[in-house]
């Protein structure tokens, strides 16, 4: 059963990764990042049960806290960018290049 959870976690992680790569809307990209984090959390929780200690859950808890902070800052940045560029596309913010 544990294996199933882990494979599900891997699938969700990969889907999130692909989403980050193919979507241009910064908010959607952010959602995909959250999806990847959640997939990781699932793996942590699964391992916690598999190994019979709470460390996995603890780490998942901390991941959630950090993710919350990250979302707050990331979305603030998106709002700021949108304000100046009238666009939330990650491809528009490409001045820092060759």
């Amino acid at each position: 059963m544990t294996t199933h959870y882990l494979v599900l976690s891997a699938l969700l992680f990969a889907i999130g990764g692909v989403g980050v790569l193919v979507r241009r809307n910064a908010i959607v990209v952010f959602m995909c990042v959250e999806l990847m984090l959640n997939a990781c959390n699932l793996a942590f929780v699964t391992f916690a049960r598999q190994n019979g200690n709470l460390d996995g859950q603890l780490i998942a808890f901390f991941v959630m806290i950090v993710a919350a902070a990250e979302v707050v800052i990331g979305l603030a940045i998106i709002v700021t960018i949108f304000r100046t560029r009238r666009s939330a596309s990650v491809d528009d913010v490409s001045l820092l290049k060759y």
């Binding site: 059963m1 544990t2 294996t3 882990l6 494979v7 976690s9 891997a10 699938l11 992680f13 990969a14 889907i15 990764g17 793996a43 049960r49 598999q50 190994n51 019979g52």
Partner: peptide, 18 residues
Amino acid sequence: FAVLLALGIGNAVVGSPK
């Protein structure tokens, strides 16, 4: 990534959960 992770992590566990 999906295949590798599934192979790597999915096969990491042997035995039933504690």
